[in-house]
Design a protein around this nucleic acid. Structure first.
Lengths: 210, 210
DNA sequence: TAGATTGTTAATCGATTAACAATC
DNA sequence: TAGATTGTTAATCGATTAACAATC
């Protein structure tokens, strides 16, 4: 259960376990050994046991892992055992897509505030949430705080709006703008660089192992 | 210039170099040493030189790297020195966002076909492209092939439509559906699991180093 | 209790960093 | 030529895999 610096490689794998355990529950599987999970997920049993043991002894010798319990515990580790509120900054195509998606809501992530600077969008309603002018961002979020700020704005505005989020007290940012934000050390950021992803696909495409 | 299995860690970093070199060009920087780039990008100079040398000697002793030339060469490695056509399967919020985005077009990725199964969407036009019924997918793409298939459909339809893409001859898939596609070995896939990304952010949020 | 399987330590493998000879 | 900086080999570090004692 120790808190001694867990590598990002391990963290990257956690959501996949979480997801896979869900499909096991759907299949009605009650318990599973690391060996069986290894076969199904195409990772080594050693890695599974090592990964899980960073966070606690979730299994039982001679029995394996209880699927529901294990998923619940990984959920706790990932912090998806409770709800999160989000403010979406930039209600363009991508912003709208995120607001409307059921996927995040199902996992407990709810959009509670929308901001945009385009007068054509301000005042419009999406999923029960009215788009506000970004000039209200700091004041509004100071009064009605959110857990997560979602940046879906053009690159050139991203840095400024990120700073405003931080000023409003938001310390957790999901950034879709294609730039690297420079923020105080206590702010955590997860970047989604779709162009990078597409380029990696392009790389795989051109360097296909025949 | 060898083709001897380059690790994914290296590939993951390439788009970032590519991006950063662009900002250097914008700043009017003509040449740069690995030491200077190291300082600016917060990676070791050793790593930069190692990474680049997987693909060729792009630098010059005593001089450093020519910024334009280096960017161009990394572009070639990533396969963004030529255009790519894409078919988007699933014209929901996310699909629309991808079609309308300038970011991909600017990098040479053009959407040339749209498919959906919803009658309310079929026939509508986005960015000059008319949405076709997915039942036409195989026939159309056999006649008018694309380089990349983009899957922005609900999880439950993803596997079936991926198989149809493959049948139509598409061997490169950008998958946004939250599932792991099982496809022939010669098909390359890049997954974008937004829910996973959000969970990693949630993890960072709850395990913040105070 | 015996068998199974974890938790955990030890061995291996790969990736990152350091060092330096080659060379522009 | 001398100085600078790469390309590349060698050393270190960290992550993955293997092994096995602990234990349910």
């Amino acid at each position: 259960m120790a808190n001694q610096k867990i590598s990002t490689a391990v963290i990257r794998r956690l959501p996949r376990y979480y997801r896979y355990l869900h499909t096991l529950i759907d299949e009605g599987v009650e318990r599973i050994s690391s060996a069986e999970l290894s076969r199904r997920m195409h990772v080594t049993a050693s890695q599974i046991r090592q990964d899980l043991n960073h966070f606690g002894g979730f299994g039982q010798q001679g029995y394996g892992y209880n699927v529901r319990y294990l998923r619940q515990e990984i959920g706790k580790v990932l912090g998806v055992d409770h709800e999160h509120s989000m403010a979406v900054i930039g209600v363009g195509n991508l912003g709208k897509a995120l607001v409307r998606s059921q996927d995040f809501r199902k996992k407990g992530f709810f959009v509670t505030a929308l901001f945009d600077s385009d007068p054509a969008v301000i005042g419009r309603k999406f999923c029960g949430c009215t788009v506000q002018d970004t000039s209200n961002l700091i004041n509004y979020l100071k009064e009605y705080p959110v857990d997560i700020g979602v940046l879906t704005v053009p690159r050139k505005n991203a840095e400024k709006l990120a700073a405003q989020l931080v000023e409003a007290g938001v310390k957790t940012i999901w950034n879709f703008a294609h730039c690297e934000l420079e923020l105080p050390a206590d702010v955590v950021v997860e970047n989604v660089y779709l162009v990078d992803s597409l380029m990696r696909l392009s790389y795989k495409d051109s360097h296909r192992t025949k």
